[in-house]
Write a protein that binds this DNA or RNA. Sequence first.
DNA 1: CTGTATCCGTGTTGATACTG
DNA 2: CAGTATCAACACGGATACAG
Lengths: 229, 229
Amino acid sequence: MKSQIETTKPDPLENRWYNDACGTALALEFAGERWSLLIMRELMLGPRRFSDLRASLPGISANILTMRLERLRVLDILRRRQLDPPANVQVYELTPWGHEAEPIFQAMSRWALRSPLHDPTLPLTPVSAMLSLRAMLRPDHSAPPMTAGFRFGRDMFISELSGSNLHIRRGKPDVVDIEFDTDTTSLVRLVYGKQPLEALERQGLLTLKGDRAVAKVFVDCFELPAHVS
Amino acid sequence: MKSQIETTKPDPLENRWYNDACGTALALEFAGERWSLLIMRELMLGPRRFSDLRASLPGISANILTMRLERLRVLDILRRRQLDPPANVQVYELTPWGHEAEPIFQAMSRWALRSPLHDPTLPLTPVSAMLSLRAMLRPDHSAPPMTAGFRFGRDMFISELSGSNLHIRRGKPDVVDIEFDTDTTSLVRLVYGKQPLEALERQGLLTLKGDRAVAKVFVDCFELPAHVS
DNA sequence: CTGTATCCGTGTTGATACTG
DNA sequence: CAGTATCAACACGGATACAG
């Protein structure tokens, strides 16, 4: 069929699945293959290494991850970068345009979490837990600006809440108003399950530093969408 | 691996691809298979028949369409409905929750169309053309409220522009301020390519009814996002 | 005519093992 | 650690046949 000589490495760009000028179809051609969007999600809060990604995406196999990364790279959604010595490792990071995909994740989350099939006890990566906060920030909350730190083992984040904006970056939470040291599932139970802070602390699932009242104000800024039917 | 006896009809619900509490992963389990989102897109502006869908989704095969429809039905994203006599045909229509997926399409479109790989000359279905108008409505436009009708052969729509809202429904455009009789590609050239109305009319690609000045105001309410880099 | 089911060739996916 | 190679299983798309 193709008049073109077959190349050893198939060009990811000529693989057009849908022949459609529609933006949705185009997005699906870019990132509609299995795993692609989840890889992008894991990169939304900063560069990651190959093995980080593999560990965060339970079930993906190495060859598929390689293929997806290569395709996303060719499409200019992400880049591969060699870290300066002495680290000297390579990481994958989103391009500015890749970062602009975040509204897709927010729209998908807000829609899908309304299903009664959502199971909040399933595991969650630190990145998706943090991104979910941004997606589920109540537009009508009235909390004052504050900073909150999160420690999920080695993964640490600093978030700055200010009005309808929640800025998130990786980093050791040094000077923050409140700091949670926990795992992602417990954070979900606290923030979305409205499980009492004290109960989680008593079970040893969460440690809070900072003002307890401020922490409760923070938690109340977030809300899962209501289930359908 | 599975301790369960295999059923003749595999339950679409037990097919969990990603084991992840993240909303994005859940959305991808619901609608991440090939074609699913495009089927939903085609239903966003009203019920369609099996053969309508098949014709709108060039490349899908009948068995795949059947499988996707069944899965979306079980998930309560769409329903199958028997039209009253004398029509007596069955149609597929989104549930209210299915309709709530529209922000996903908007986010995907706005993101993907910024790629230089977007080819606006590819074919476009009437539904995606109309939906794109809603996605690409400039938030800062200052046009007064107006109604615009669209005829793409048998597919007819009425849109009501009012501030930042563009309501769209199927229907014969009877009492509208302006009416376009054209094909989707020409509409794209007019609205996003900013090709002059008169040029398209001269080529016989478009017929306008109503006030020409109003039509130009309408067209200027829409804008494609700028390409990256 | 509308929609569904079955068969089959092909390409994609993913688990395992392996290499620089 | 960061991938590559191999191979089996599955999903896809096309054709065809079937049912209302």
